[in-house]
Amino acid sequence: MNEINYLWPLAGGLLIGLSAGLYLLLDGRIAGISGLTAAAMGLTDGGTSKLGLGFLAGIVAGAWFTSLLVRQPHIAITSSPTLLIVAGLIVGYGTRLGSGCTSGHGVCGIARFSRRSLAATAIFMAIAGITVFVARHLLEGLL
């Protein structure tokens, strides 16, 4: 591996940490993608959030800008589209049930030493590992 392979993830992690830290310092809120998405779509008590819309627009613009700088990957969907949709809906339900997603709990919550976020992150990482094991080793060929 060459040095550039380590720079992209480092830059991405620094930008995520910087944006989450600035959001907390300047607005006093946790930068969880599921919460910001819900606010942008008007699914929260405050109606549609301009801040949420701006955050989501920044994510899309950042991905688009990066795609101009980095080679395009070959994307191949190898699972059933129905399975992917069901899995996405389950993940979405889980983020609402758990009051946050990996970005809110994993990035922001752990950085604040939140016991609830530490527990949530440990649980969803363990479940992710179990899910991969079951899907790859026990149900291989069925999905």
Rank of each mutant, 00 (worst) to 15 (best):
A135E: 05
I77D: 09
L142T: 13
R29A: 12
S103W: 00
V132K: 13
I90C: 13
S49K: 07
G100L: 05
F133Q: 04
L53T: 06
I130P: 01
G32I: 05
L68V: 02
G13R: 03
T66A: 11
L36E: 00
I4E: 11
S80K: 08
L26W: 09
T48Y: 11
H137N: 12
I59D: 07
G52N: 04
G28S: 11
L89F: 15
G52R: 01
R29I: 10
V107I: 15
A61G: 11
G28E: 07
L89W: 14
I110V: 11
F65S: 12
A122W: 03
G88W: 08
C101H: 06
P81I: 10
A40L: 08
L43M: 14
T37P: 01
Q72C: 07
I130C: 12
A119L: 13
I33A: 11
G100I: 02
L22G: 08
R96A: 04
I85C: 05
G21A: 09
M125I: 15
L138D: 06
L97H: 14
V60T: 12
A120Y: 02
V60K: 12
V70P: 00
G62Q: 01
G12S: 11
E140N: 14
A57R: 11
S99M: 06
R115V: 07
M1E: 10
G21F: 05
L143I: 15
A40V: 14
V132N: 12
T121Q: 01
N5P: 00
M125G: 13
L7R: 13
L143Q: 09
A126W: 05
R29P: 00
W8D: 00
F113H: 14
H137G: 03
K50E: 06
A126F: 14
G46P: 02
Y23D: 04
L26Q: 13
L68Q: 04
I59F: 10
V86A: 15
I130R: 04
T95C: 03
A40C: 08
A20Y: 08
L10F: 15
T131I: 13
G54V: 14
L25C: 07
F133I: 09
L143S: 10
